[in-house]
Amino acid sequence: MTRIRFHQSLDDLKEKLLVMAGMAEQAIERSTEAYRLRDLNLCDQVQAAEPGINRLEREIDQLALDLLAMEQPMAVDLRFILAVIKINADVERVGDQAVNIVERVRDLYTMPPLDVPVDIPRMAALSGSMVRRALQSFIDADADMAESVLTMDDQVDAMNAGAYKTLGAIIQEKPAQAQYALDVLFIARNLERVGDHATNIAEDVIFWVRGADVRHHLRTGS
């Protein structure tokens, strides 16, 4: 009763998710580049890509649902499909964060540029690196690599907290710059959420590979 076709379908599911993840990753990169360069063309590209990400999200969910219903998977296969369903939602949300960022970039574009003391490109590099590493751990079924993503989240959270403090002070002290600071604050918040989604993806990889639930700081099992 070897199930060659079923296991081929699992490979297809993984491949589709990776295509979508590549699109979401690119959207985040473009959105932060759009911020750095004040580039509306990049904003357009991010927004144009979103329907494609959404379409893939629906296709992946449907394929996963079909496999659950038709193949009744067990053990590592069951964990894989559950992980895919959850990673799928997180990847789609990464795409949404990119769209949120470019909406703020469009608003920023209407104002003269300001040099705010928050390093958004660095924060973007860190959260982007978390997403890449989480996805690589998914590709390689590498729970150790996934674990390393969890430790990176604290840095992004700290940067977001720092941005909140700095920009909050600007909003209070310089009302003329409040809208600009608020937009940047939202972008920092969006990048912090990207880090959270990467963390979720890494946790799902650990669940798939080890069968261990490490969410909410539960200890990892091997």
Binding site: M1, A75, G211
Partner: peptide, 15 residues
Amino acid sequence: FTNPSDKRTEDYITG
């Protein structure tokens, strides 16, 4: 059925 300890069990139940 979700996380068997033995590889042979896993290989059997996953086909």
